[in-house]
Design a protein around this nucleic acid. Structure first.
Lengths: 348, 348
DNA sequence: CTGAAAGCGCTTACAG
DNA sequence: CTGAAAGCGCTTACAG
């Protein structure tokens, strides 16, 4: 009883019996094999439709050895604050998978024997939100599951990944701010245990360095990617004796909080304090419609989800991981939230 | 080759041969059946560990008839703006499922024969973000797949659901604002094709009605649940000849935009225009840390995800859908963003 | 173009 | 407490 799922209609044998054909022929007709007679195929298709025949996925998987599923591993810090960007990323993955005959399996964590065994149910895995030292990557490599990482990690081996150029983007943004006369440029970052945050900090340092500026330790803070944290951190920055005149934020939500703190301090975003944020292009927060519109480093996370799924699909088909190591450029979109440093800011 | 997944270790037969036992006994030992000898079980467990034996999920599913998977249907409006709340909801679902030996399967849409057939791979389904007239619900009922809806829908039949009292929450919030002297209370809502938005509008109307106020058509707007839309709608409200003195927002993101528009207009949130928002308790935007802290109607969407998963699990075990029809209360948390109507507001 | 049969890797009555 | 055997519902060489 329990085992009967989905109103359990007919199975292949019953359908074949009904048609007076063999399971072989019916199976071939249904799966579009060329060697089936025109008329036979028509009859089979028609009967399948009429009896609402739906093949048992487990049986098919067992017979073919293909799971027909792409797994998605939650971001590394799952459990605390699930990053809202993940929804957008997942939408990209699911949208692409929906164009195939596979499905998406969510794998919250790799802990536990049960969970690990479940990985056999998957043709390839997408690892989202990797940490700099991410234990999941060597674990997957050891298990021999094909996988592709959204971002990078320090594990040895030529695993597949798709990353955006976080370091380059933040380096250029920092240089741009320096070129606008800013001398104290702060960075409100995510947890640097995560690769994207580590790389953005590197970019920030490199940018300062390139312009002969000091990366003073008090000028970067890492933490939650929340509106609240953006506010709190910025408020503290502005209370400094020598406050930053420009602030880089690792997400739009952080930037929203940052702008709020700036206004609360009676300052104007853009004029008194410049703000540049990284924009993953979540439709729910648009940089161009804020007031003032936000200057951003940007890359569409949904597109990354789509592309990474294509890689996962290719790996599932036996593709070579080394062939899939992509770094997408990060664009800088200049809007009004970034401007020349105020006069007082130049004297540092 | 292709079919070989996850480094394909030993299978049950090989493990049994190696141990000099039957597949029957090994299977029973592994699955914790009581009739296995103490010593035998130890040997089996040990060998399984040493050979990294991981049972083939498809074979197990085929044999037992249980999929070991809970499906999650994307919200109705998937494809356009995927609601960031969905990430939080999914975290609740995935967290609860992870405590079982099942997994989460994402089902973006019910379109297409392939997709529909995939539903057989699932023991029960969670339908998120239902529309008032949601074609997916009758479709699932017809197919006989056990399912539970997050929210309600108008389909006939005693399907399982878990909803929060959107109507009651917004009714009470509206009454509260009216009791504070507000006469023009606006509603910035999501698309009323979706049940939660329809119900909140109903609550708003009921609240106005209860206090003898008119629900003028210009005082509610539905649309995207984005920061931008909150801003745009509120800006338009404030440009009215008789602008609202209080605004209800259907999400925190809308409220963020709304507050921004209010401040842009040179007005103070709380003093000049009261704002009340619905808070699903996304960790990334906290009502209590905004300035001023936001008065909210609130219910934790992650908890709903957990509970709805328990319902889905129960349905998968043959539970009666009629036994699972829950409406959770919506609390009102009073903070500083809502206050008495300004003097000019009382004259309407 | 069609079919009989083996096989995918498990679980589970049934028998001992 | 253990095992031989059937069965879950497909796919796919192999033979014709």
């Amino acid at each position: 009883m329990l085992g009967k799922i989905g109103g359990n209609g007919v199975n292949l044998r019953e359908l074949a019996d009904h048609l007076g054909l063999s399971q072989t022929t019916v199976s071939r007709a249904l799966n579009g094999y060329p060697e089936v007679g025109e008329e036979t195929r028509r009859r089979v298709m028609e009967a399948a439709r009429r009896h609402d025949y739906r093949p048992n996925p487990s049986a098919r998987r067992l017979a073919t050895g293909r799971a027909g599923m792409i797994g998605v591993l939650f971001p590394f810090d799952y459990g605390l604050t699930i990053d809202p960007h993940f929804a957008e990323f997942l939408a990209g993955v699911a949208g692409r998978v929906a164009e195939t005959d596979s499905d998406v399996l969510i794998v919250p964590s790799l802990d536990g024997a049960v969970r690990a065994s479940r990985l056999r149910a998957v043709d390839a895995l997408v690892v989202s939100g990797p940490a700099v030292r991410d234990p999941r990557v060597p674990m997957l490599a050891r298990m021999g599951v094909p996988f592709v990482v959204h971002g990078r990690t320090e594990a040895p081996g030529a695993f597949a990944f798709l990353d955006v150029d976080n370091e380059g983007g933040f380096r250029r943004a920092t240089e741009m701010l320096a070129d606008l006369g800013h001398r104290r440029i702060a960075l409100v970052n995510g947890p640097t245990a995560l690769t994207f945050a580590r790389d953005r900090e590197r970019g920030w340092r490199a940018g300062l360095d390139a312009r002969g500026l000091q990366a003073s330790p008090g000028m970067t803070v890492q933490g939650d990617m929340s509106e609240e944290n953006g506010y709190r951190v910025t408020r503290d920055f502005l209370a400094l004796e020598a406050p930053p005149t420009a602030i880089l934020c690792s997400s739009m939500l952080l930037a929203l909080g940052s702008c709020r703190a700036i206004r609360d301090a009676g300052l104007a975003v853009g004029a008194d304090v410049s703000v540049v944020a990284h924009d993953d292009r979540m439709p729910s927060i648009k940089a161009e419609t804020l007031v003032p519109p936000l200057t951003t480093t940007t890359s569409a996370i949904r597109d990354a989800g789509r592309r990474i799924t294509e890689i996962a699909l290719a790996l599932a088909d036996g593709g070579d991981p080394e062939a899939f190591r992509e770094v997408w450029p990060v664009e800088i979109v200049f809007r009004e939230s970034a401007g020349p440093a105020p006069a007082s800011g130049r004297t540092g």
